[in-house]
Design a protein around this nucleic acid. Sequence first.
DNA 1: AAATTCAATTTTGTATACATTTTTATATAA
DNA 2: TTATATAAAAATGTATACAAAATTGAATTT
Lengths: 206, 206
Amino acid sequence: MMNTPKRNSAYTQAYEYLREKILNGDIEGGHKLVEDRFAKMLGVSRTPIREALRKLEEEGLVKQKRVVKPTESDLRDIFRVRMLLEGDAARAAAYYMDNKRLATLKESIDVSKRGNYEEIMVSNKQFHDVIVEASNNRFMIDAINRMQSIIYLFRKTVVYHNRPRLIEEHEDIYQAIVNRNAEKAEKLMRDHLQADLDFFLYVSKD
Amino acid sequence: MMNTPKRNSAYTQAYEYLREKILNGDIEGGHKLVEDRFAKMLGVSRTPIREALRKLEEEGLVKQKRVVKPTESDLRDIFRVRMLLEGDAARAAAYYMDNKRLATLKESIDVSKRGNYEEIMVSNKQFHDVIVEASNNRFMIDAINRMQSIIYLFRKTVVYHNRPRLIEEHEDIYQAIVNRNAEKAEKLMRDHLQADLDFFLYVSKD
DNA sequence: AAATTCAATTTTGTATACATTTTTATATAA
DNA sequence: TTATATAAAAATGTATACAAAATTGAATTT
């Protein structure tokens, strides 16, 4: 057992702390992350901070000791990849998804309808996660996850509430999967992500 | 300037050394990588070794201090992702690739025809790289690169010489791109990768 | 023989120290 | 003013040390 990193290792703490700060926007894009500063702040040595920074670098949140500042073009690029991968995942979901997962999918749609802002953010993410997992493809899941944090960065920036048709689109995708219509599920997922992107870009034009 | 890691830092050396060893098969899959051992071997401290190991972990070559041992199912999964991404890259190439790159593409095909085993391996990879770069999508390029080392691992395992039609398929893809036939370029690329996978799997059945 | 215990050994995570490199600030020349 | 040189300060890369954790292997019990 115990193949997950120890929850309370200094390194893990530091990683989670920094990640949280970055995703929340507490540490701004472009900001230099000085090892010593955080070491003192967290009362540990630089060693675990370095490891945390490297991990964040893998994840794409940090580049050359600075918090990344993704551009609009980054967002476009990410969505292009997402459309390909998640589209394919939706197709796989239509073929293979079991009833238990289907129920989770349904559940996440329901939560989106009645929940508050925070809950909607979570259930929205869950909807996509469940479908991605249906791909049953570790490399696909990894590739998408790696982009998640940057996507989240955008969700915070763009005030992302109540995009019209968002829930309806999720429902349509769900229906296509239930009906085992792979072709349609894929197309709907792509369109859905495209619409998401368009909305992001539209809203961020101040 | 100088944003690439210093070529001669202990950490970079260690990284390159280990990577080389793993890809060559000098260190077998499943083998435990003990920090101290390599530190002594390379005459450096454990610190840069640790960083190198973490980097290799990002890259998917190492997992929990052990050299990964990719399974056949991993290979299938990787190829599914590659088909999606490289297929799309081929499409983009048909739309946007400039003459200079087209020439490089052509050149790599030519080398494949007359070169020796090593040269064919290199030019084969180059053919794919040039197309992937044509996507002009950093995230796509990253996602594919991350899988390259594992793919290489297979290339070494499976004796990969002279797959029938390999060069012809490259030529067909090249022609589709030259003719700016995006649809066809994408389809040919997908088929090409599928054939590659099938051949790999066929050959590795002993 | 297989399972269990437990001490010895190895390996890891983290702290600390320091030389080298990079950044910043300040003074001087154009 | 802008540019250039340079001294001071900060940050990084690496080595070393050591306690905690994991692994190994022998001794013991079943």
